[in-house]
């Protein structure tokens, strides 16, 4: 923030919240990578580590909430300060959800142990994971810099994740139709793909919060929504439509 407050401790309070968000974001980013790695390698120990590492993320979210509420109560922030504090709470809640999805991937990794990968689906999952991880990294960067252009670009970038999710959805449905023995694996992989797709949505929500902090307005809801999986059905002939 270019201008400092007359009350210096107010600046310190705001900076502290921002630092906590960054710490939380870093942890979440790491969780995405580890949960996907554990899945690909069927590494149950790593999956266990991921599940345990979700606790400190949740704790950090509570701490950010507490700090934000304290600032609201004691300092009654206004204008950009108000947006900053309210946004911190929302960003923390979105990051916490991303953390939960990583934990869920880790749980499913345990269920998938002993099942081989199906087709190229896990490669796609890995690419999706990398994409979302990069989005989280960039959104945190945009958050620190209050970079409007970057936030807007991120909102659009989520489309790519949605496209990959659509492709994977069709692919996994096909495998299940080919051989019912694939169903257990494919169902779990499908949920994992959905988890990653949701992570992208939460990252987009964070980008929207950045837009609000900077401009004081929420972005218009005209971003591309490309998740078509809720409309895909299998016809009587066994075709995907």
């Amino acid at each position: 923030m270019e201008n400092t407050h007359i009350v210096k401790s107010f600046d310190r309070d705001l900076t502290q919240i921002e630092n906590m968000i960054l710490e939380m974001g870093g942890m979440v980013e790491n969780q995405i990578m580890l949960s996907i790695n554990a899945l690909i390698a069927r590494d149950e120990d790593l999956a266990k580590t991921v599940r345990a590492a979700d606790k400190p993320i949740d704790a950090l979210e509570s701490a950010i909430d507490e700090n934000s509420i304290r600032i609201l109560a004691l300092r009654q922030p206004l204008a950009s300060d108000l947006r900053h504090v309210v946004c911190a709470m929302k960003v923390a809640s979105n990051l916490e959800r991303i953390g939960d999805y990583c934990k869920n991937i880790a749980k499913r990794t345990v269920a998938l142990s002993g099942h081989d990968s199906v087709g190229s689906s896990e490669k796609t999952l890995k690419r999706m994971g990398q994409l979302v991880q990069q989005m989280v990294r960039d959104v945190l960067d945009a958050y620190v810099k209050k970079d409007l252009a970057m936030a807007e670009e991120l909102i659009l970038r989520d489309e790519e994740v949605d496209h990959m999710h659509n492709t994977l959805f069709r692919e996994l449905l096909t495998y299940m139709m080919e051989d019912p023995r694939n169903i257990t694996s494919c169902m779990h992989l499908l949920f994992i793909a959905k988890n990653i797709e949701r992570m992208g949505d939460h990252t987009t929500a964070v980008a929207e919060q950045i837009y609000y902090v900077v401009t004081g307005e929420l972005p218009e809801d005209d971003r591309p929504k490309s998740d078509m999986t809720s409309q895909i059905v299998v016809s009587a002939e066994g075709d995907l439509i």
Binding site: N3, T4, H5, I6, V7, F10, P77, L78, A79, S80, D81, L82, R83, T215, G216, E217
Partner: peptide, 19 residues
């Protein structure tokens, strides 16, 4: 004015940056 002021001077005053 209190949630999203348009002018920087307003912003600075109501957030306690200028007296």
């Amino acid at each position: 004015i209190f949630s999203a002021p348009r002018q920087e001077r307003t912003q600075n005053y109501i957030t306690g940056r200028i007296g």
